[in-house]
């Protein structure tokens, strides 16, 4: 199927880091079942380094591929590097996503940010709330889907 790039298909067919982490340092979940995609990211953090990351995703091919790619991109990185991960970077690493699937990469970025926020909250680490804007899922969809 030429719907997706080879990279997307590879990460969809052979997703990296699927699963969960018990007693994870931080857990983030975004999306909702009504819209058809939910991503959950588990982080294991030691000395500010993401030593393990796992994901669970309910969603389409690009949602699964975006989760897989995003987890690969932050594994072994510092939390600051993970904070800087953008949805654009995820989409580019996948050799692009169809326009109406860009929200999948946004979800991946948000899920990671959510997990990091959970980690900061649990450990009373101060952060700038502006780095974690509340995301309305319906709006997000509309923004990327347009009038459809």
């Amino acid at each position: 199927m030429a719907l997706y790039s080879e990279k997307v298909m590879d990460h969809f067919m052979n997703p990296r880091n699927v699963g969960s982490i018990e007693n994870a340092s931080g857990v983030g979940e975004v999306g909702n079942a009504k819209c058809g995609d939910i991503m959950k990211i588990y982080l294991q953090i030691e000395n500010d380094i993401i030593v393990d990351v796992k994901f669970e995703t309910f969603g389409c091919g690009s949602a699964i591929a975006s989760s897989s790619m995003a987890t690969e991109m932050i594994l072994g990185k510092s939390i600051h590097e993970a904070m800087a991960l953008t949805n654009k970077a995820v989409a580019e690493a996948l050799d692009g996503l169809p326009a109406h699937k860009m929200h999948c990469s946004v979800l991946a970025e948000e899920a990671i940010k959510n997990a990091l926020k959970d980690y900061f909250d649990k450990n009373h680490i101060p952060y700038d709330p502006a780095d974690f804007p509340e995301l309305d899922h319906d709006e997000l969809h509309e923004a990327v889907h347009g009038e459809d």
Binding site: M9, F58, G59, G61
Partner: peptide, 21 residues
């Protein structure tokens, strides 16, 4: 979700469809 289901079925040689968004 239906699309991921279809893609995996396609990989196994089955052409089907879905009504997912």
């Amino acid at each position: 979700e239906g699309e991921s289901l279809l893609l995996l079925l396609d990989a196994k040689g089955i052409c089907a469809s879905s009504g997912s968004a």
